[in-house]
Protein backbone atom coordinates (compact mmCIF):
# COMPACT_ATOMS: atom_id res chain seq x y z
CA UNK A 1 0.00 0.00 0.00
CA UNK A 2 1.49 3.35 -1.05
CA UNK A 3 1.23 6.53 0.96
CA UNK A 4 -1.55 7.96 -1.23
CA UNK A 5 -3.70 4.89 -0.79
CA UNK A 6 -2.78 4.75 2.88
CA UNK A 7 -3.91 8.34 3.42
CA UNK A 8 -7.12 7.69 1.53
CA UNK A 9 -8.10 4.36 3.07
CA UNK A 10 -6.48 4.17 6.50
CA UNK A 11 -6.03 7.72 7.70
CA UNK A 12 -9.75 8.61 8.08
CA UNK A 13 -10.07 6.14 10.95
CA UNK A 14 -7.86 8.40 13.09
CA UNK A 15 -10.87 10.29 14.48
CA UNK A 16 -12.58 7.14 15.66
CA UNK A 17 -9.32 5.94 17.20
CA UNK A 18 -8.80 9.26 18.93
CA UNK A 19 -12.32 9.34 20.37
CA UNK A 20 -11.95 5.76 21.57
CA UNK A 21 -8.57 6.42 23.21
CA UNK A 22 -9.78 9.67 24.74
CA UNK A 23 -12.86 7.92 26.13
CA UNK A 24 -10.67 5.34 27.86
CA UNK A 25 -7.77 7.52 28.98
CA UNK A 26 -9.52 10.87 29.52
CA UNK A 27 -6.26 12.54 28.55
CA UNK A 28 -5.87 14.29 25.20
CA UNK A 29 -2.12 14.07 24.88
CA UNK A 30 -2.01 10.41 25.78
CA UNK A 31 -4.86 9.69 23.38
CA UNK A 32 -2.99 11.46 20.57
CA UNK A 33 0.23 9.62 21.34
CA UNK A 34 -1.60 6.34 21.13
CA UNK A 35 -3.23 7.23 17.81
CA UNK A 36 0.19 8.22 16.43
CA UNK A 37 1.70 4.97 17.65
CA UNK A 38 -1.20 3.07 16.09
CA UNK A 39 -0.53 4.74 12.74
CA UNK A 40 3.19 4.04 12.89
CA UNK A 41 2.37 0.38 13.39
CA UNK A 42 -0.17 0.42 10.58
CA UNK A 43 2.33 2.16 8.31
CA UNK A 44 5.00 -0.42 9.08
CA UNK A 45 2.53 -3.12 8.15
CA UNK A 46 1.26 -1.33 5.05
CA UNK A 47 2.38 -4.12 2.72
CA UNK A 48 0.18 -6.65 4.48
CA UNK A 49 -2.66 -4.23 5.20
CA UNK A 50 -4.66 -5.09 2.08
CA UNK A 51 -4.92 -8.68 3.32
CA UNK A 52 -7.06 -7.60 6.25
CA UNK A 53 -10.80 -7.74 5.69
CA UNK A 54 -11.46 -4.83 7.93
CA UNK A 55 -8.64 -2.33 8.37
CA UNK A 56 -10.85 -0.18 10.61
CA UNK A 57 -11.34 -2.98 13.12
CA UNK A 58 -7.65 -3.93 12.91
CA UNK A 59 -6.62 -0.35 13.69
CA UNK A 60 -9.10 -0.24 16.54
CA UNK A 61 -7.65 -3.44 18.03
CA UNK A 62 -4.15 -1.89 18.07
CA UNK A 63 -5.47 1.27 19.74
CA UNK A 64 -7.49 -0.73 22.27
CA UNK A 65 -4.45 -2.80 23.26
CA UNK A 66 -2.24 0.27 23.56
CA UNK A 67 -4.87 1.95 25.74
CA UNK A 68 -5.18 -1.07 28.01
CA UNK A 69 -1.38 -1.22 28.38
CA UNK A 70 -1.32 2.45 29.20
CA UNK A 71 -4.06 2.09 31.83
CA UNK A 72 -2.22 -0.83 33.40
CA UNK A 73 1.08 1.06 33.64
CA UNK A 74 -0.78 4.09 34.95
CA UNK A 75 -2.30 1.99 37.73
CA UNK A 76 1.10 0.54 38.55
CA UNK A 77 2.65 4.01 38.75
CA UNK A 78 -0.12 5.25 41.02
CA UNK A 79 0.52 2.32 43.34
CA UNK A 80 4.29 2.81 43.24
CA UNK A 81 4.20 6.48 44.04
CA UNK A 82 1.32 5.95 46.45
CA UNK A 83 -0.09 9.35 45.63
CA UNK A 84 -3.51 10.09 44.16
CA UNK A 85 -2.31 11.96 41.08
CA UNK A 86 -4.91 12.58 38.49
CA UNK A 87 -4.02 12.34 34.82
CA UNK A 88 -7.51 13.17 33.64
CA UNK A 89 -7.99 16.37 31.68
CA UNK A 90 -10.42 19.03 32.68
CA UNK A 91 -13.03 19.86 30.07
CA UNK A 92 -11.49 22.55 27.88
CA UNK A 93 -13.32 25.80 27.18
CA UNK A 94 -13.65 24.73 23.53
CA UNK A 95 -15.76 21.81 24.57
CA UNK A 96 -18.01 23.89 26.79
CA UNK A 97 -20.48 24.76 24.12
CA UNK A 98 -24.17 24.98 24.80
CA UNK A 99 -24.77 21.64 23.17
CA UNK A 100 -21.99 20.04 25.20
CA UNK A 101 -23.51 21.45 28.36
CA UNK A 102 -26.86 19.89 27.61
CA UNK A 103 -25.32 16.43 27.31
CA UNK A 104 -22.70 16.75 30.05
CA UNK A 105 -24.57 14.43 32.41
CA UNK A 106 -24.70 11.61 29.88
CA UNK A 107 -21.03 12.07 29.16
CA UNK A 108 -20.07 11.87 32.82
CA UNK A 109 -22.16 8.78 33.37
CA UNK A 110 -20.56 6.98 30.41
CA UNK A 111 -17.10 8.06 31.55
CA UNK A 112 -17.76 6.41 34.90
CA UNK A 113 -18.83 3.04 33.48
CA UNK A 114 -16.47 0.06 33.80
CA UNK A 115 -13.87 0.06 30.99
CA UNK A 116 -15.43 -2.80 29.08
CA UNK A 117 -18.91 -1.27 29.02
CA UNK A 118 -17.40 2.09 28.17
CA UNK A 119 -15.62 0.57 25.17
CA UNK A 120 -18.72 -1.23 23.95
CA UNK A 121 -20.90 1.90 24.21
CA UNK A 122 -18.23 3.88 22.40
CA UNK A 123 -17.97 1.37 19.58
CA UNK A 124 -21.69 0.78 19.15
CA UNK A 125 -23.62 3.88 20.09
CA UNK A 126 -21.07 6.48 19.11
CA UNK A 127 -19.11 4.93 16.25
CA UNK A 128 -21.88 2.65 14.97
CA UNK A 129 -19.91 -0.58 14.53
CA UNK A 130 -21.78 -3.82 13.89
CA UNK A 131 -21.88 -6.52 16.56
CA UNK A 132 -19.57 -8.65 14.41
CA UNK A 133 -16.98 -5.89 14.27
CA UNK A 134 -17.24 -5.20 17.99
CA UNK A 135 -16.81 -8.92 18.68
CA UNK A 136 -13.62 -8.86 16.60
CA UNK A 137 -12.27 -5.73 18.27
CA UNK A 138 -13.13 -6.76 21.83
CA UNK A 139 -12.30 -10.43 21.30
CA UNK A 140 -15.63 -11.41 22.91
CA UNK A 141 -18.62 -13.31 21.56
CA UNK A 142 -21.62 -11.40 20.27
CA UNK A 143 -23.88 -12.51 23.09
CA UNK A 144 -21.51 -11.16 25.76
CA UNK A 145 -21.42 -7.89 23.88
CA UNK A 146 -25.22 -7.64 23.72
CA UNK A 147 -25.49 -8.36 27.45
CA UNK A 148 -22.85 -5.78 28.38
CA UNK A 149 -24.27 -3.22 26.00
CA UNK A 150 -27.74 -3.68 27.46
CA UNK A 151 -26.38 -3.26 30.98
CA UNK A 152 -24.45 -0.14 30.05
CA UNK A 153 -27.41 1.49 28.26
CA UNK A 154 -29.71 0.76 31.18
CA UNK A 155 -27.18 2.21 33.62
CA UNK A 156 -27.00 5.40 31.60
CA UNK A 157 -30.81 5.56 31.45
CA UNK A 158 -31.24 4.90 35.19
CA UNK A 159 -28.61 7.43 36.24
CA UNK A 160 -30.13 10.09 33.99
CA UNK A 161 -33.65 9.31 35.25
CA UNK A 162 -32.43 9.71 38.83
CA UNK A 163 -30.87 13.07 38.00
CA UNK A 164 -34.01 14.28 36.26
CA UNK A 165 -36.21 13.16 39.17
CA UNK A 166 -33.89 14.86 41.65
CA UNK A 167 -33.98 18.10 39.70
CA UNK A 168 -37.77 17.93 39.40
CA UNK A 169 -38.13 17.49 43.15
CA UNK A 170 -35.78 20.42 43.83
CA UNK A 171 -37.72 22.76 41.55
Amino acid sequence: MKSGEFIEKVLPVNRKLYRFAYRLLANREEAEDIVQETFMRLWNKRKKLTEYRNIDAFAMIITKNLCIDSIKSRNRNVMDVDSPFNTKDEVSPYEKTELADSVMNARQIIDNLPDQQKMIIQLRDIEGYSFEEIAEIMDLNINTIRVNLSRARKKVRDSLTKKYDYELKRN
Binding site: L11, N14, Y18, R19, V35, Q36, L99, S102, G128, L160
Partner: peptide
Protein backbone atom coordinates in the same frame (compact mmCIF):
# COMPACT_ATOMS: atom_id res chain seq x y z
CA UNK B 1 -29.99 13.20 26.69
CA UNK B 2 -28.45 9.79 26.05
CA UNK B 3 -29.26 9.89 22.34
CA UNK B 4 -28.36 13.52 21.93
CA UNK B 5 -25.02 12.81 23.55
CA UNK B 6 -24.35 9.99 21.09
CA UNK B 7 -25.04 12.35 18.18
CA UNK B 8 -22.76 14.94 19.73
CA UNK B 9 -19.94 12.52 20.52
CA UNK B 10 -19.83 11.21 16.94
CA UNK B 11 -18.64 14.57 15.73
CA UNK B 12 -16.17 15.15 18.53
CA UNK B 13 -12.52 15.70 17.77
CA UNK B 14 -9.56 17.13 19.56
CA UNK B 15 -10.05 20.88 19.35
CA UNK B 16 -6.54 21.83 20.43
CA UNK B 17 -4.37 20.28 17.78
CA UNK B 18 -4.76 18.92 14.31
CA UNK B 19 -3.91 15.28 14.70
CA UNK B 20 -4.74 14.44 11.10
CA UNK B 21 -2.24 16.84 9.54
CA UNK B 22 0.37 15.66 12.04
CA UNK B 23 -0.19 12.13 10.86
Amino acid sequence: EQFRYYNFAREEKNPQSDLESDL
